[in-house]
Simulated assay, not measured.
Amino acid sequence: MRLHAYESSRSYKEKVKFYHDKKLIKRVFNPGQQVLLFNSRLKLFPGKLKSKWSGPFMVKHVHPHGVIELVDPAADDPQRSWVVNGQRLKHYVGGEVERLSTMMNLVDL
């Protein structure tokens, strides 16, 4: 009976790990890229329309196992950096969207 419980627990843990790993998104970041940071602790002004993404920040260094070192280019001290988990980041495409909309306006003419 103990062996059966051990096997059942092990198979359950494997299924949960598979489900969790399936939800993780593989993103590749390179130094010099601009990214947005997800701030889950932002509770100052709760509201539906308040964005939880802050930034853009610049990637300074990519460490192994998904650790990313960020720098805020708009800060008064550009040398100050901090380390975050790569799952809390997404690529910033603000500039590309503006260029794309400009191209679409040129095509319409």
Rank of each mutant, 00 (worst) to 15 (best):
V28T: 12
V28A: 08
V28Y: 06
V28C: 06
V28H: 09
F29P: 06
F29S: 08
N30S: 15
P31V: 14
G32F: 11
G32P: 10
G32L: 14
Q33S: 13
Q34I: 03
Q34N: 14
V35A: 07
V35D: 02
V35K: 01
L36D: 03
L36M: 14
L36Q: 05
L37Q: 02
L37S: 02
L37W: 03
L37T: 01
L37A: 03
F38V: 03
F38W: 09
F38A: 08
F38H: 11
N39E: 03
N39Q: 09
N39G: 00
N39D: 08
N39L: 00
S40Y: 08
S40W: 06
S40T: 04
R41M: 07
R41Q: 13
R41I: 02
R41S: 10
R41W: 01
L42Q: 11
L42I: 02
K43L: 06
L44R: 10
L44F: 04
L44H: 02
F45T: 01
F45V: 01
F45G: 00
F45L: 04
F45S: 01
P46A: 04
P46W: 05
P46R: 03
G47S: 04
G47W: 03
L49N: 07
L49M: 04
K50R: 10
K50E: 06
K50A: 02
S51K: 01
S51W: 00
S51A: 04
S51I: 00
S51Y: 00
K52M: 02
W53M: 01
W53H: 02
W53S: 00
W53Q: 01
W53P: 00
S54K: 05
S54C: 07
S54R: 05
S54G: 07
G55T: 04
G55R: 03
P56K: 04
P56T: 07
F57W: 06
F57I: 01
M58F: 10
M58N: 13
M58R: 15
V59K: 06
K60D: 15
H61T: 15
H61V: 15
H61W: 12
H61L: 15
V62N: 09
V62I: 14
V62F: 09
V62Q: 09
H63F: 12
H63C: 11
H63I: 05
H63A: 15
P64H: 02
P64Q: 04
H65F: 12
H65T: 07
H65Q: 11
H65M: 09
H65N: 12
G66A: 08
V67M: 13
V67Q: 11
I68A: 06
I68N: 03
I68E: 05
E69I: 13
E69M: 13
L70T: 06
L70I: 10
L70Q: 09
V71F: 08
V71I: 15
V71D: 04
D72T: 05
P73I: 09
P73D: 11
P73V: 08
P73T: 10
A74E: 10
A74N: 11
A75H: 10
A75Y: 08
A75I: 05
A75C: 10
D76W: 02
D76Y: 02
D76N: 07
D77F: 08
D77Y: 09
D77S: 09
P78Y: 03
P78E: 12
Q79C: 10
Q79M: 14
Q79P: 00
Q79L: 14
R80Q: 13
R80Y: 12
R80H: 14
R80A: 12
S81C: 15
S81H: 14
S81V: 14
